[in-house]
């Protein structure tokens, strides 16, 4: 009976209703598509305008060219700024990853007096707005007559990167199965051997992720850098200063290049992980 009704009704379903049904079934997909479009619009824009034959200010589309990609250092200062950012980022990554990983092991693996205070000290830099971190460090440097510049910037970056490293590595440590280490001990491995052969390899992906995070936080930081870098120009600082008079298309080339490089690293990491899992 009901089937008959459905059959009778079927040919008369209007496209509007059909669309509504399709929409209801695929709502979540449509939503994801829209959300990712929103996320990627400025990236696509930046990428597209890296091919703009724009001259000095990259505001309006003037025609397609590959010359910006062939000569990414063509604009004055842009590669200098990039090199500074990479140098700062690498040093910051090394220091914050080492210090942060040690703290993460202490908090994640040991019970000791002052553990909750330690957690608070790690949380505080994350709960402090960047501008306060930057301004307070600058005021310290000025009090001790230290000029802002390369090393003050490195120090400032390490301060806020440590917390993110601790949180990332700690999460990885928390997800470890303690039985694996017990098994190593049962097989007569001493504490150091257990750590080197079992614990460290298991935590390594977390440490690698934390290092990547520290580098990208440092590389893209503007506010803290602006306060503590003095005359040293980093890539974000270059872009911010250039924004007033027009950003050269070479900056778009570098930003797009970094985007694809980082994407490649993350995807490669995932593929390696998947192979290992097999």
């Amino acid at each position: 009976m009901s089937k008959k009704i459905a059959e009778a009704a079927a040919p008369t379903i209007s496209p509007v209703i059909r669309f509504r049904r399709w929409f209801g079934r695929n709502l979540i997909r449509v939503y994801m598509f829209l959300a990712f479009t929103y996320l990627f619009i400025p990236v696509a824009y930046t990428f597209a305008f890296s091919f703009n034959d724009s001259g000095k200010s990259n505001l309006v589309w003037k025609g397609f060219t590959l010359s910006n990609w062939q000569n990414p250092c063509g604009a004055p200062e842009v590669c200098n700024a990039l090199v500074n950012s990479i140098n700062i980022g690498l040093i910051v990554t090394v220091f914050s990853t080492i210090l942060g990983t040690m703290i993460a092991f202490a908090i994640g693996r040991h019970k000791f007096r002052g553990r909750s205070t330690s957690n608070l000290l790690i949380f505080l830099p994350m709960a402090t707005p960047e501008i306060v971190l930057g301004a307070s460090l600058l005021s310290l440097f000025l009090t001790f007559h230290i000029n802002p510049g390369f090393w003050p910037t490195v120090i400032a970056h390490v301060v806020f990167c440590i917390s993110f490293v601790v949180v990332t590595v700690k999460a990885r440590i928390a997800s470890l199965d303690p039985r694996l280490e017990q098994a190593a001990m049962d097989l007569y491995a001493n504490e150091f051997q257990t750590f080197r052969r079992v614990t460290l390899p298991l935590v390594a992906p977390g440490i690698a992720g934390a290092a990547l995070l520290a580098f990208s936080l440092s590389f893209d930081d503007f506010i803290i850098t602006n306060f503590n870098s003095g005359t040293v120009i980093t890539f974000p600082k270059f872009v911010y200063t250039a924004a007033a008079r027009g950003i050269p298309a070479q900056a778009n080339v570098i930003a797009s290049g970094m985007f694809f490089l980082a994407l490649a690293i993350v995807l490669a990491g995932q593929i390696v992980n998947r192979r290992k899992a097999r």
Binding site: P42, V43, T46, P236, Y240, A255, S256, M258, F259, L263
Partner: peptide, 8 residues
């Protein structure tokens, strides 16, 4: 991924 492009 979008956050690998400079935020400024």
């Amino acid at each position: 991924a979008p956050f690998f492009t400079s935020f400024i």
